[in-house]
Simulated assay, not measured.
Amino acid sequence: MSVVVVDPGMTSTNLGDQIISDAVHREFVTPLAKVADKVTVIPMHGPLTEESRQAIRDADEVVVSGTNLLSNHMRFRTSWEWPRSDIELAKGKLTVFGAGWWQYQVGAIDLVTARWMKAMSDGRTWGVRDKYSASRLKAAGLNAEHISCPTLWRVTSQTLPSSETRVIATFTDYNQDPLADRRLVELLESRYEVLYWPQGPGDRKYIESIAPEGAQFIEPSLAAFDSELQKPGSAYVGLRLHGGIRALQYGVPSLILSIDNRAREISRSVGLFSPSRHSFRDIEMALEGHESMPIQLPSKAIDEWSGHWKTK
């Protein structure tokens, strides 16, 4: 069996994609390499090289991992950056792993897209990151299961910030609400030493517009973020989903605020506490400290989905 894995972290300018990529390699690529004849990893972002195209042509399976890939009208408009001709090189052998819906959409998957998805699929179960995404695919006749995001597979619980002295905060440039975000900045600055981490390339400029003059910034690298997370007395509060999940991976108290369907649906699916950034009272109460809350992963579905890759 020859498998191509499409990796969201390679060549991406969003450090959250690197967090996803770490988990994809740990939970899927490394175990798969022990049983597959050949595993080739290619980047999701940017144009394909001819070498990558040939790898897809030669592969028995193509697995695209961890992104906002799915939507009602994928046949016509897709968040996948590749040209349609490159995407369709994977026809009849495509599986998704940890992917989810682009955003909330009214209505069902259009019939042309549903037929196209079925034609692209190799018949394996598509493993998606939340129940919402699974239900939409199943309604269109595709074989899908909620297996959560692989970044959460080794996370057993969530502890909220309480008595910590320093907070690493994130904001996002792509979904701005200066009024709500300044209010959050003021709350954090009144309670903690605050360090800001720009996860995406445009985040720092936006943070500078809402944070006090002289705000402390962490270098925009995953290594720097990891280092700060592991310093004593640290917690995480922010709008960047995977920055918060990275904190949970290290056992660091973390409050992730929902700004779109991703954190909201993961929250509903596994019990992650993730209030809206507009629910200010909930945010204040969360920072008062709570007992550790379990993350309720779909362990049976994860084991079954992973197990299928060990048998062919």
Results as ranks from 00 to 15, higher is better:
V5A: 01
V5R: 04
V6K: 04
M10I: 14
N14V: 11
I19P: 04
I19N: 05
S21G: 07
V24N: 01
V24Y: 02
V29T: 13
T30L: 05
L32M: 07
A33L: 12
V35A: 03
K38A: 10
T40M: 12
H45D: 10
H45M: 08
H45T: 09
T49V: 09
R53C: 08
A55N: 08
D58W: 15
E61G: 00
G66K: 06
L69F: 15
L70R: 09
H73L: 15
T78H: 14
T78C: 08
R84N: 12
R84F: 03
R84W: 09
I87H: 04
E88V: 11
K91N: 14
G92R: 14
L94Y: 01
L94M: 15
L94V: 04
T95S: 14
F97N: 06
G98M: 11
W102Y: 14
W102H: 15
V106D: 15
V106R: 09
V106M: 12
D110S: 11
V112T: 07
T113K: 09
W116P: 00
M117F: 15
M117C: 09
K118G: 12
S121Y: 10
S121I: 09
T125G: 07
W126V: 06
G127A: 14
S135I: 03
A139H: 10
A139L: 13
L142W: 04
N143G: 01
E145S: 13
H146D: 11
S148I: 00
P150F: 12
T151E: 00
L152S: 00
L152A: 00
L152G: 00
V155Y: 06
S157T: 06
Q158W: 01
S162R: 06
S163K: 15
S163G: 11
T165Y: 08
R166N: 07
I168R: 03
I168L: 05
F171H: 05
Y174S: 13
D177S: 13
D177M: 02
A180C: 04
R182Y: 05
R183V: 05
L184K: 07
V185Y: 02
E186F: 03
L187H: 02
S190N: 10
R191N: 06
Y192W: 11
E193L: 13
L195S: 07
Y196L: 01
K205Q: 14
S209K: 11
P212F: 02
P212T: 01
E219T: 10
S221N: 02
D226Q: 07
D226V: 12
L229S: 02
G233W: 09
Y236K: 04
L239Y: 07
R240D: 02
R240A: 00
L241A: 03
H242V: 07
A247P: 04
S254W: 05
S258T: 13
S258Y: 07
I259M: 06
D260E: 04
N261W: 08
R262D: 03
R262I: 07
R264I: 01
I266G: 00
S269G: 10
V270Y: 07
G271T: 07
G271L: 03
G271K: 05
F273E: 00
S274I: 10
P275T: 10
R277H: 08
R277P: 02
F280R: 15
D282K: 04
I283T: 02
A286W: 00
L287G: 02
P294G: 04
I295A: 06
A301V: 06
E304K: 11
S306E: 06
G307R: 10
W309D: 03
